[in-house]
């Protein structure tokens, strides 16, 4: 990675504040070419695997074995995509994944924010130790948990239903910790105080004061959760009914055989990335929107 000696362009080029009343540091400086250069490099590096995937997906399998891939997309993407649709139950699996990841994301964001709010702003007995406990659970390696988790799910009779992949992920320690750290500073005590003075119950205070103020953080958590859930493979493979898989489990079937047809595999992954990109764009705007549209301080 490049060493970054300067973090911002020349000081003192502050432009006068623009129309909006509350803007963050953003308007203090106009970045120079240097900043745009660094960022462009970052974006190119970020985007290249997507382009590479599409390149392979739009040619035939044989191209993958070339050391230097062709630089321009070929014309086979639609043919490869239709082979994907013929090989696996793409739409059904996609639907399942949307249900699973969507439910998990909504739930994680809501429940983590709720718990984060309690840990950050409310006083109750045992708060410190309980928070330490939550954070400590993050340090537990989960890779061996799959067998005992399956035992629990089988006892509950939940295996083979989507519940088996949804329920264990409804709220995460990661989410609680992140929202707690964000809320501590981003939600001013005065606001909560004012709401309480107006006679709001804690849950109403949470709903009307806290939730609107944490949109950027909640959106980050949302993207993170959605992606983790979307990419999960081994647990859905084990826990779900073979007729009703999630998209990653279904896509794995494209890798059958000793010779893996990478143009087919990457066509499948490219197709499955589209819904993710949509979620990403929707939630991404929330992050960018910043807090000024939410609760207003002072």
């Amino acid at each position: 990675m490049t060493a970054v000696p300067t973090i911002a362009p020349t000081a003192g080029t502050a432009t006068p504040p623009r129309r909006e009343k509350r803007r963050s540091i953003a308007n203090l400086e106009r970045p120079g070419v240097f900043v745009y250069g660094i960022l462009t490099a970052f974006i190119l590096a970020s985007a290249f695997p997507f382009y590479w995937s599409y390149l392979v997906a739009s040619h035939d399998a044989n191209v993958f074995a070339d050391t230097v891939p062709p630089l321009l997309p070929g014309g086979n993407f639609l043919a490869n995509a239709s082979r994907v649709l013929d090989t696996i139950e793409f739409w059904r699996a996609l639907g399942n994944s949307i249900v699973v990841s969507g439910t998990v994301t909504l739930s994680v964001v809501l429940l983590s924010t709720l718990a984060g709010f309690a840990f950050a702003k409310l006083r109750f007995r045992g708060r410190g130790p309980l928070l330490v406990f939550v954070i400590a659970t993050l340090a537990v390696p989960t890779q061996l948990g799959i067998i005992p988790l399956f035992i629990v799910m089988a006892e509950l009779g939940w295996t083979s239903s989507l519940g088996a992949v949804i329920v264990p992920n409804l709220v995460t320690a990661f989410g609680v910790f992140w929202m707690r750290q964000y809320i501590v500073d981003a939600v001013p005590d005065e606001l909560i105080e004012a709401a309480r003075m107006d006679g709001c119950s804690l849950i109403r205070t949470f709903w009307h004061v806290c939730l609107p103020a944490v949109r950027p953080a909640a959106a980050m958590l949302g993207i993170f959760t959605f992606m983790t859930s979307w990419n999960d493979f081994l647990w859905p493979l084990v826990a779900l009914s073979p007729e009703d898989p999630t998209i990653q489990v279904a896509l794995e079937k494209l890798q059958a055989g000793y010779f893996i047809d990478y143009s087919l595999v990457l066509a499948g992954t490219t197709m499955a990335t589209v819904p993710v990109l949509i979620v990403f764009i929707v939630l991404g705007r929330q992050i960018v929107a910043g807090i000024m549209q939410g609760a207003v301080k002072g």
Partner: peptide, 18 residues
């Protein structure tokens, strides 16, 4: 698809007992 994934599923469920 892959033999690896199939057998991982097999061993997990052998161990879990169902």
């Amino acid at each position: 698809g892959k033999s690896d994934a199939h057998h991982q599923n097999l061993y997990t469920k052998l161990a879990a007992g169902s």
